[in-house]
Computed example of a mutant assay.
Amino acid sequence: MAAEQIETVNTGADKAKLAASVLLVIAGIVGFYMLTKQGALAQWGALIAALVASVAIFMSSESGKEFVAFCRDAVREAKKVVWPARKEAMQMTAYVFAFVVVMALFLWLTDKTLEWAIFDLLLGWR
């Protein structure tokens, strides 16, 4: 059974939209730092305006449309998840904490036993 190949065709216009989107983000960041003398309102206004314009251009591209479709599918799949009840989640959390405590005690005991066997019995350093 051969795997299906999914090919996307990126047109020049689509690549130009993506490039313009990236350039708008860069321009927004540069504008934020260039407008320090005009005050925080001008800085944040320029940055937010550039980011909004960048997102609008990105969403009009084919990649943006695919991203929106992916997000919709992800939300749809997340709604299908059967989440545990509070009681069940608390019980599982308690089991995990108990296991961690038991494992910590086991590792501590193993470490101390090996320390005693190596340093006291084998090497006689203590």
Rank of each mutant, 00 (worst) to 15 (best):
T113Q: 15
A20E: 09
A3P: 12
F58D: 07
K17Y: 01
A3F: 11
V25G: 00
F32Q: 09
V75Q: 08
V96G: 10
K17V: 01
I29R: 06
V22F: 14
T93C: 07
Q5N: 11
R126Y: 06
L41I: 11
D73H: 15
A27M: 09
A50M: 04
D14V: 01
W116E: 00
L105Q: 03
L24W: 01
K17M: 13
V30G: 01
I118V: 10
L123G: 05
Q91F: 08
L47H: 00
I29G: 01
F99E: 03
F58C: 04
A50R: 00
S61E: 13
E77P: 01
A85Q: 13
M59C: 12
A49R: 04
A13Y: 10
S63W: 04
F97D: 03
A98R: 13
K112W: 09
F97T: 06
Q38R: 10
S54Q: 00
L23V: 02
A98H: 07
L35G: 03
D111Q: 08
S21G: 07
N10R: 12
K87Q: 10
W125K: 06
W83V: 14
A40S: 10
K79L: 13
S63H: 12
E4I: 05
V55F: 15
R126A: 01
F32T: 01
K37G: 00
V96R: 12
M59S: 11
G12R: 08
L51Y: 11
V81A: 12
Q91P: 02
V75S: 08
K80M: 06
F58H: 07
W116M: 01
L18G: 02
L105A: 13
W125T: 03
L41C: 02
M59T: 11
S60K: 05
M90Q: 13
K37W: 05
K80T: 04
C71K: 08
K17I: 00
F99P: 02
R72I: 11
A56W: 13
I29Y: 06
A53K: 02
V75G: 07
L122Y: 02
Q5W: 03
T93S: 12
F99K: 00
E7G: 08
K87F: 14
M90L: 10
G64L: 02
